[in-house]
Each structure stands twice: as structure tokens, then as C-alpha cells.
Computed example of a mutant assay.
Amino acid sequence: MDSDKDSRFIPVNDTCNMLEMTLSFPEQLEEAYQIAEKQELIKINHIPSSIATIGMGGSGICGNIVATSAIENIKMPVFSFRDYTVPEYIDDKCLVFAISYSGNTIETLTSLKALLDRSLRNIIIISSGGILEQVSQKFNLPHIKIPAGRPPRASLGYLLIPIIVSLGKLGLFNRYEDTIKEVIKEVEALRTDVNADIPVENNIAKDVAIQIKGKLPIVYGTGEAMGVVAERWAGQFQENAKVLTFNRTFPELCHNQAIGWEDASGITDKCVVISLEGEWEKGAKVEQRGALLDIVKGKGIPVLHINITGDGGLPAIIRAIYLGDFISIYLSALNNVDPCSIGGINSVKERIAPYIDKLNLLS
């Protein structure tokens, strides 16, 4: 390290090497691409009328990222379901991705059972194993198996890239190979700028971590692209840095939270707003954002403006997500917490574990 000061940003209690996994994200993307390219996919007799993903947490957000990318790369509706149910309008004309890093996520398994019970078979499964892999074998469904032994939130590349490659190989995602190359190029450049060796005065990730330490972060994203990034940042701050975080999206929040800020007494010294601002955003949306943030600033609440470069496509989204990942790791170090521990999530999973057996997916 360049200085003792910067050593504060290295997690002391990093039981799963989360920092190293974050640093190796560009290589993860490349490996995920190679894994997915080798996978033999289902034969489809007709072009799907829509695409759907089912998944939760670090797996589920992949569907939202793909749906956001649909504006530029996909010419059909994309639905992301993150619950126990899937609507009846998801039928055999829809191509479905069932995604769970462990392969044992109860919400994903329950949704998948509903689809199988409706005789749907246009399903591609992505997991590191688990019950999903066994289901793929039982029903002869394509299974893209990804490396095991990692936290799902540190496996975004393994979970996301196979969706894009699968769609590309089926002719449903324009320029998928070039897009993935652009994504890798963007995250490699960001890693150079914000890795652990770059001192805080030249490192936006470390600087933001310092400014939000001890605060309640509220992450705002402008538009769908930055909205999904805001959700990822909030999730990473909570899981890695153990900091309660909220997220909202412009312009929707202007229609409700503008009033919520009117009486912010008692919390102004606790909150910090992070505004993710794509340089491609123009016009009324930007004016709305400025008006709302003026209200926030008027209450004495600090606002961090984070400029996101690019055109709002997948490379810009993944680069912005990657920046949030670094911030969350550096914040975990400042908070002296293990970025890997997820005691609360595990306690919830233990409570609902008996319900998985009741699904009888393999009987």
C-alpha cells in the first residue's frame, strides 16, 4: 500500500476474500462468457414472444439488468419475476431463465415448479448446482453450470453473462459478443482507477466510502438504467458493509418522496443521498432530479452527485455497478466488519428450508 492511511480500506475480517473476488471481476466476466459459449441450448421452433427471468437477490437482479438492456439490444418484452409466483401470461411462447446461484432458492424453485406444472419447457437453468441442476436433469432442460463456492453477490458475471450469451446465440440479443467485450473493457478501466492501491485522493470509491461512513445512505438512480444500479448499490452496502440503505428511482420518487422530505426533522444528521446521474440523461428528467435534490439540500442533508459516463447501455450499467461494489468493500473495512457474513439472511433461510421439501420437485 502507498500509505498507512490507505490500509484502512483493506478489510481485516474478509473470510471469503471478497476484495480479491471484486478485483477479479473482469476475469470472471471472460470466464462466464467462455462457459456459456460452450453450452448447448434448447432448440426453439419459433421465435419467443417474450423473455422472462425468475430469481432472487444477486441472481434476481440479473433479470432487471437484462430488462433494462432490452431498450437497446432486445426487440421483445423482458419480464423479471422475484417472488414465489409467475403470472399465467408467461406461457410456452416465452423463453424463461431460472437463476439461482446455489440452485436451492425457494422462491425460484416454487416459481419453476409452477411453470413445469403448466408444461412449459422453454426454460434455461443457471446455477452452480443444487436442486436446480437435478431438475434440469429430470426434465432434460439446458443447465449452464457456473463455479461454486462463492457468495451470489460476488458472482454477477457468472449469473448475468450466460443469459446474454444464450439470447445472443438464439438471435435474440443484438451484438452480444461486442457488447460483452465493451463491458469487460469498461470494468478493466474502472479497476485501474479505483483498486486498493490507488490512494484516496485519486480514488472515487474510497472517497465515497468515507463520506457515507456512519450515515444512512439513500441511493437515487435516474431512469431505468441507474435505477437498477441504485438497487445493486443498496444491496451491496447492506450485505457487504452491514449498513441499512434505501434506494429509489427518478422520476417516480418526485411524485411522492418530494413530500416525504418536507418533515425530515430528526434524521437530517443521519442521512446522505447518493444521486447516480448518467451523462446521457437530458431535459425534463434532469430538471426534475435537480428540483428534488434542492429540496433535500434545503433540509441540510448532504448529496453526493456521482456522474456515470456512457450512453446508458449495458457497459455503462455494469461499470456503475462495479463502482458500487468497490465502495461497499471499502466501507466494510472502515466499519470493521466482515463483508462475507450474512447471518440475518441465513436465519431467514433456515426458517423456510422445510418448505423446499414440500415442493416435491424431484419426486
Rank of each mutant, 00 (worst) to 15 (best):
E107Y: 06
Y220V: 10
D92Y: 10
T222G: 09
S155I: 08
L216C: 05
K75I: 01
N104L: 03
F237M: 08
I144M: 05
P354Y: 04
S127H: 09
K215R: 15
N247V: 01
L29P: 05
F97P: 12
L41K: 08
V296G: 06
D269T: 11
Q211F: 04
L292I: 12
V303K: 11
L253P: 10
P87Y: 05
I10C: 08
F139A: 00
A316N: 02
V348E: 07
P315S: 03
R289L: 09
G223I: 09
N64C: 07
M226N: 15
L304V: 04
I47F: 04
E30R: 12
N104I: 06
M18W: 01
E107S: 08
G58N: 07
P199R: 07
H305S: 14
T245G: 00
C62D: 01
L29C: 15
E27K: 15
E231Y: 13
P26F: 01
K181V: 02
L109T: 11
E224G: 11
V187G: 00
L323T: 00
E31A: 10
I124V: 15
L334H: 14
V12F: 10
T309P: 00
V200S: 14
R232A: 06
I198E: 06
K213V: 12
K206P: 01
K299N: 14
A353C: 05
G298A: 08
V219R: 05
S59D: 06
I295P: 00
E252N: 11
V12D: 08
P152L: 06
L361D: 08
S69R: 02
E281K: 14
